[in-house]
Structures are given as structure tokens and as C-alpha cells.
Amino acid sequence: MILDLHTMLVAVAVATACCAIARIVLYILHPGLAGLGYWAWASVIGAASFAVAGTGAGMPEGWSLSLAHGLVVAGFCLVWDGFRRFLGRPGLTSRFYLGLGGAAVVMIVGSHLAGSLHLRATFNSALVMAISAAIARELLWRTPPHRLAMRLAGWVYFANALFFLVRGLSIGFDLEFMAGKMSYGMTVVASMWWLCVTISVTLCMVLMASERLQADLNEQASRDPLTGALNRRAFASLGEREIVRARRTASPLSLLMIDMDHFKQINDCLGHGGGDEVLVLFATLAGRILRAEDLFCRFGGEEFLALLPSSSLMEAMGVAERLRAAFSAEGAGLDSEGKLPFPMTLSVGIAALAADEDMEAAIRRADAALYRAKDLGRNRCELAGG
């Protein structure tokens, strides 16, 4: 049985509407995830485009098809905008939307005045191809290998760009289109392809949201809730990897054991809220001074650990001194009322991983160096012995 063309378009619209419902539910469940609202609206507009094409919306066929094409392009733009926001990149500007809309209006009006269905279809294919290629680039460029759903969505849009490239080139060989008539075969293929892409992309969107939520949960499980530093469990796991890497590459690996001096008195004088502010201040300073590859951990209370890959003992000493000086300079700002009878300082013990020791042994040596710094008057950095 061969379906009437308009009946088939309405059926595709209904199936696309089901995908729209799935995206809307996804947005309702996770409104805090950037971009999901744009994906939902894009799917609604996509369903509307096929509904307009299938029913005619009470308009002459040429104008209803032009409106449907315009809605398709608008939906692709919203999807692109949503992906950019989901990835933490700036969204598309209103100037972009206005410029694209103006160009589309000029082309639609021009093609109607010329009576050219061929020109209108070619222009629509070119726009969809360009936007699909842009989305594919967003999703595939610098995407980590473990983001499988994101990469899959990127390849779907890459395939979509190729499809519309072929469609645009093949229009000139379709006699029905060149005669100004709708081509049943081409419309069926394009509609079925649209449905496959919509279903595939919706599935990828659900999986991408799940990946993001799982990554957020993993991040929360590995971080100290107050300072944002790694917790001990996460530090131990990542630290073991760094030890393996250091031994494989024969590169140095140094450890800082850091403790705030007189922290009990700081809590007594400033209150526990003030003590928390001191801890957050130090974690912020450490985030500015340490490198991206360094590991920073809240070891317990006012004690912190920093693991410095590819850093010798003397290089680690330089980092420790910068941390100590920065904390002394900026810590005074938290005691603007002069409640503390002493300046805010910290002491640091520094150890380099020996060839025959594990992380626990290196931490014990750094801790011994820290206590020596305390015994020698605090507010200083001390190197661990062998």
C-alpha cells in the first residue's frame, strides 16, 4: 500500500511529536542542565513543520511548504544553540537569528516570484547542510573519547550534512522538481531520513544528559563540599595513577603537606563560619597557584595535600613558598577587625617520592617535615629527609 503524501507527512509529524514529548520531559526533569529547553523547542518546531507540510495549514501549497522549510531551519538553529549551551559555550546571538531569518525571507519571496520550487528546495538543503555540519563540528571537536553519546550525536549530524548535500545536488536531476511539482520519491526519502535522525538525536540527547548527570555525581563524590578540593579517597586513587606515570616516565613527583597555624584559635576568635572562610580562601589561592595537572586534597580539618607531577624537591619548595606568602598576604583581609592576636600563616612539609616507597610512606615523611616546621616556629616550609 502506498500512502498519500500528505498522510505520510502527518504520520511523520506525529512520530516527531513523540520525540518532542521525550525532550520536554527531559527538560522538566533536569531544568538546570543548559541547552535542554532549546532541544525541546526545536523538536516542537520540527513536529509543527511536518504538520504544516502535511495539512497545508489552510495556505496555498507553495507557501505552506516554504513555511515548513523555514520551521525546519529554525529547529536546526535551536538545536545548534542548545548544544553550544550544553557544552558551556556562548549561545547563538540574536543578530545571527535575525540575519538568517532575513536571508530566508528574501530567498523564499524571490523563489516564489520566480516560481522556482527548485531554487527554494536547494536553498533549504544548503542551510540544513551548513547548520548540521556546524553542529557536527561542535560535538566532535575536542570531545573526550569517553563521551560516547556526544560523539555519536556528532556523527549523526555529520551524516545529515552529507545527506542534505547529496539532496541539494540531486534536485537538479529530479524532473518533477524541475517542473515545479513535489517529488513523491524524494519527499518520502527525506521524510524517513528526518524521522531516523530525530529519533537518533533524541536518544543521544537523553544519553548525553545522563552522562552529564553521572559526571556531576562523580565530581560531587570526589570533592570536599566546603572547599571543592579532592577528598582523601579521590586523591588516593588519582595519586596512585600519578605514581605509576612518574615511574614509567622516570619523572620526579613531589608532595606538599600543608597545615594552617593556630587554626583552633582562628575558630575561637572568628567563629566556625570565619574558620570556614579561611579554609575556602586557602583553597581558592591554591587553585590559582597550582597547575591544572597538580592534585589538591583536603586531607582533614585544616590539613591539605598537594601532589606535584614532574616537579623536583626544590621546585616543590618554590610552590610551597608561593602558597605560604600568598596566604599570609591575603589572610589578613579576613581579620579586618583585628580579632586575631597573630597573623594567619601556614606551615608546609615537602617530600619527593622515593623509588621504593608508596604514597602512604611519602605522606608520612612529608608529615614529619611539617611537624618539624611547627617545632621551628611555624610559618615556614621544611624538606623531608630521605
Rank of each mutant, 00 (worst) to 15 (best):
H69C: 14
E337M: 10
G56W: 05
M314E: 06
G91S: 01
V166W: 09
H112A: 13
P341R: 14
I131S: 02
L285D: 01
W155H: 07
H30V: 12
Y157L: 07
A179M: 11
R291G: 04
T93K: 03
R23N: 02
Y27V: 04
S116P: 06
R288D: 04
R23E: 05
W141V: 07
V73T: 13
R89W: 02
S43M: 00
S200P: 08
W155L: 14
G82Q: 01
Y371C: 07
L119I: 11
L26P: 10
E330M: 09
G62Y: 11
V166F: 08
Y97R: 03
D356A: 05
V25H: 12
P252E: 10
R324G: 12
L383G: 00
C18P: 12
D261A: 09
W41L: 01
R247C: 11
G54W: 04
P144I: 08
P60I: 05
V348Q: 03
S200D: 14
A103W: 10
S170Q: 14
G385L: 02
P341C: 08
C297Q: 01
G37Y: 00
T187E: 05
S191G: 00
T7I: 08
G46V: 00
R95E: 12
L308M: 01
T93Q: 03
G185E: 09
H146R: 08
V106P: 11
M1A: 11
W155N: 15
E357V: 09
E242T: 08
I171H: 06
F163E: 05
A161S: 01
L255G: 11
W193K: 12
M208I: 09
A384H: 00
A355Q: 14
S222P: 02
A17G: 04
R241E: 15
G168P: 09
G271F: 03
H69D: 11
A229M: 13
E360I: 11
H118W: 13
L9G: 15
V278D: 03
S251E: 14
V166P: 09
A42T: 04
F235P: 10
L340T: 12
T202A: 14
A320Y: 06
S183Y: 02
L307V: 15
V10G: 14
R247M: 15
A121Y: 06
F50H: 03
